[in-house]
């Protein structure tokens, strides 16, 4: 169970294209004029202090909430114009697993299979449950599962339709060390298989291990978008051995309003 190296070899045109994304709540600007692209095989880390707009960005680009302005394309499909085609390619994992408390583990998979029209769902589902070591819980309700197991169930449901675009919002919350290791490997494996991944986390070591590049947000605005080496070069102040934590702190300090 060794962690695989980060993916750095994107294979084709952008799977996620965001242009001028803005989200306003009355007079409050949660995200402002955000543009970026993630290609298949890339893992982009979304970082920033609390209230930077990371979760709002993820929710906008996954179609949960409508942006005030801007466009989002998922595998070439405009999320506003062709939401069904765009969402068919997406899996979204929030920090708190969102499950229906009256459906069993197996029923969650059956339901998800119908929603995403997965013909061979039974085999894939069984395989996922075994991989995630919750096959013996197929008959349990979410209320009978631990937090980590609920997270695993959410992951199984999310991966059932083999998404090409994956959004993860603080994906390691509640997982034990083995679960964390598996999650990291799973992210990298999906990227190798061609998925474009955006990962929002405060855990900088996670970003260091799995991300090909990072996008730093502050008060809803992009302050940097590039590879880890580029971010180091820009914010390390010529200190070659600066840790990502130091770089992150400098990046967010330097751009203080």
């Amino acid at each position: 169970m060794e962690i695989l190296p980060p993916v750095l070899a994107p294979t084709s045109l952008a799977a996620i294209e965001v242009e001028g994304l803005t989200k306003l709540y009355d007079s409050f600007t949660a995200v402002s004029e955000l543009s970026f692209a993630v290609r298949p095989g890339e893992v982009m880390g979304l970082v920033g202090p609390n209230g930077a707009g990371k979760t709002t960005t993820l929710r906008c680009i996954s179609g949960i909430i409508p942006p005030t302005r801007g466009s989002v394309k998922i595998c070439g499909n405009d999320l506003a114009k062709n939401p069904v085609e765009a969402k068919q390619q997406i899996a979204f994992f929030s920090d708190e697993p969102r499950l229906f408390d009256y459906l069993t583990v197996q029923q969650h998979l059956e339901f998800t299979a119908r929603i995403y029209q997965v013909a061979n769902a039974h085999e894939i589902g069984q395989q996922l449950l075994e991989e995630l070591e919750i096959a013996d819980k197929a008959d349990k309700l979410p209320g009978e599962l631990s937090r980590g197991m609920k997270q695993k169930l959410a992951i199984a449901c999310g991966f059932l339709h083999s998404p090409k675009v994956i959004f993860l919002d603080e994906p390691l919350t509640g997982l034990d060390p083995i679960g964390i290791r598996r999650m990291k490997n799973s992210i990298l494996k999906r990227a190798r298989d061609g998925a474009a991944i955006i990962l929002s986390s405060h855990l900088l070591h996670l970003l260091e291990e799995v991300c090909s590049h990072v996008l730093i947000l502050k008060t809803g605005q992009k302050i940097f978008d590039g590879t880890l080496n580029e971010v180091r070069q820009k914010f390390s102040q010529q200190s070659a051995d600066a840790s990502l934590e130091e770089v992150f702190l400098r990046a967010t300090e330097e751009t203080k309003a």
Partner: peptide, 25 residues
């Protein structure tokens, strides 16, 4: 735990999945 009201096939109209889920509830 509630028994499913009917067997939900993976292919078919999607709104039926929501009907199936809500009937279970």
């Amino acid at each position: 735990k509630s028994r499913a009201p009917f067997r939900l096939q993976p292919l078919g109209p999607r709104p039926i999945a929501l009907l199936w889920k809500n009937l279970i509830s």
